[in-house]
Structure formats: structure tokens, C-alpha cells
């Protein structure tokens, strides 16, 4: 299964290695890992809790993967997204793509993340010493996702 939604951490090396295991046609493996971070100058972040919509999440991630496969020559891919309470430094999400060439692998990774951020039903709750607040959606994320509506995919 290329899409996984899980509470536990993942092993990036093992996931990426698995993409090309047993095949010789994947000339490019690209990946992105999102990590819980402390915003410089902001109140110290104690934890970030990710809530999601079980069922719809898996369905949307599978749709996003299918949309990427329509646009680029993807040999294999992984989308792993965690939920639950994570502390700064912990991994949140992995997308990884195997493709014959690098342009498609890079672009497909970027596309998967851009679409995931605006279409997958996850919500982040930031926890500090003084309380909790839900993270607001960013207009820049909408713009990043929208650019793929017009951009021509790389063919290689």
C-alpha cells in the first residue's frame, strides 16, 4: 500500500530503499520529509497534535497519488502521514517518488505535498506552556496547490 496514515514514526531510509528494491528502471528517487519545528521568535512549542478524518484521509491521499501518477511517469511512490501528539523535531510526513528521471521525481514530490496540504483532512493544534491554538490555513498553501492546475507536467 503506497498510502499510510499512522501514529508511529517511519524509517525514511527503509521507505526510500523499498521504492527501488528489486527494480532497475528507477533512475531517480526523490523525497520530502516534513518535521515539527519551532518558529524562531515565537513562544516555545511544546507539542503539535495532528487530528484527521479517518477514512476520508486515506481516500484523499489515494486520490492525490492517482493524480500524480496521471501527470508524471511514477514507478512507485509512498505517502506516509502521522497523526497524534508530536514534539518539535519529530517527523510528520513523508512523500517519496521513484521515476526514471529526476525532473519528474522532484516535481511529483512537490505536487504531492502541495495537494496534500490543501486537500487531505488533517488539522494541527499547537501546544505551548500558556495554552493551545489551532494552526490557521495559509493562503500561500492554496496558491502553491493552485499552480498545478495550469502547469504542464514534465515528460521525461
Amino acid at each position: 500500500m503506497a498510502v499510510r496514515v499512522q501514529r508511529e514514526d517511519f524509517d525514511p531510509g527503509a521507505e526510500i530503499a523499498a521504492l527501488s528494491a528489486g527494480r532497475t528502471d528507477a533512475g531517480a528517487l526523490a523525497s520530502f520529509i516534513g518535521v515539527v519545528r519551532q518558529t524562531p521568535g515565537a513562544e516555545p512549542l511544546v507539542a503539535m497534535t495532528l487530528e484527521h478524518y479517518p477514512g476520508m484521509t486515506e481516500r484523499m491521499l489515494a486520490e492525490i497519488e492517482a493524480a500524480a501518477r496521471d501527470r508524471w511517469p511514477i514507478l512507485d511512490c509512498r505517502i506516509i502521514h502521522r497523526y497524534g501528539r508530536l514534539v518539535p523535531g519529530e517527523r510528520i510526513v513523508l512523500v517519496a517518488v521513484a521515476s526514471p528521471h529526476r525532473a519528474a521525481a522532484f516535481e511529483a514530490c512537490q505536487f504531492l505535498m502541495d495537494w496534500l496540504k490543501t486537500k487531505a483532512p488533517f488539522w494541527k493544534l499547537e501546544e505551548t506552556a500558556t495554552g493551545s491554538r489551532w494552526v490557521d490555513a495559509q493562503a500561500s498553501d492554496d496558491a502553491a496547490a493552485a499552480r498545478w492546475d495550469v502547469a504542464a507536467p514534465a515528460r521525461s
Binding site: H52, Y53, K117, K119, A120, P121, F122, D136
Partner: peptide, 10 residues
């Protein structure tokens, strides 16, 4: 029917 705020994953 699910109602929720704009998503913020990733």
C-alpha cells in the same frame, strides 16, 4: 456529512 475548518496538514 463532515464539517471542519480549512485543512492544515503536511
Amino acid at each position: 456529512v463532515a464539517l471542519f475548518p480549512p485543512v492544515t496538514g503536511g
